[in-house]
């Protein structure tokens, strides 16, 4: 069990059966009144933001969360299936919980899956991933429109802006934190 003294930004706890992360925290105490611990928390499954005020003496459960390396197997409808390569145990994640990760996942790639008990609630991606461009218009020489980027589709189906010199079949590095083109992978 955790007490109010453990409250701080980043703490993960269980509330009404869901995992929450504390995103803002302040200790307040009016005049000669009681100490109050004001928190803002985000539900780690559905993203809902909640304001909660605790008093001294109150306690709560830590959230039992685990990051486990797993292999992404396949997608079926809105379900993504991952497998633990040590135990061959499989977990299924809803598209909603995947967030932007679905833009960067290729079958058989290894990622960290965030587990809340048995439930997969998120994917932690590396900051940079390499993906191949499967469609982009050729750079029209003499294009004077002043555009310094053009759309390109990568093998996951994700569409982003790339520099004009990128050609179909090339491998590019994407920054997964903002979804933007980073560099061209040579060779």
């Amino acid at each position: 069990m955790l007490s109010v003294a453990d409250l701080k930004k980043g703490l993960k706890l269980t509330l009404d059966g869901d995992p929450y992360i504390v995103i803002a925290f302040d200790f307040v105490k009016p005049g000669k009144g009681q100490a109050l611990y004001r928190t803002k928390m985000r539900n780690m499954i559905n993203g809902t933001i909640l304001d909660r005020t605790y008093r001294s003496g109150e306690s709560f459960e830590p959230a039992s969360l685990e990051d486990r390396q797993m292999e992404y197997l396949y997608k079926e409808g809105t379900h993504y299936t991952f497998m633990d390569q040590q135990t061959y145990e499989q977990v299924v994640m809803e598209e909603d919980a995947m967030g932007d990760a679905k833009n960067y996942l290729l079958e058989n790639c290894k990622v960290d899956v965030l587990l809340y008990g048995e439930k997969a609630i998120g994917v932690t991606l590396p900051n940079f991933v390499n993906l191949r461009v499967i469609q982009t218009d050729p750079w029209a020489k003499g294009d004077t429109s002043g555009n310094d980027s053009k759309p390109a589709t990568v093998e996951t189906g994700y569409v982003l802006r790339v520099p004009p010199f990128i050609e179909e079949g090339e491998l590019i590095t994407i920054d997964t934190r903002n979804g933007e083109y980073s560099t061209r992978v040579k060779g």
């Binding site: 307040v28 009016p30 005049g31 000669k32 009144g33 009681q34 109050l36 004001r38 005020t53 008093r55």
Partner: peptide, 30 residues
Amino acid sequence: FDEILVTKIEPSLIREKPVLLVDYPIEMAA
């Protein structure tokens, strides 16, 4: 009382001038 004071009243007080909040409940004034 304390929770409402901190979460509802303090944030609503006028900010353009200092405020004197007066006459507290007798229970809150040892």
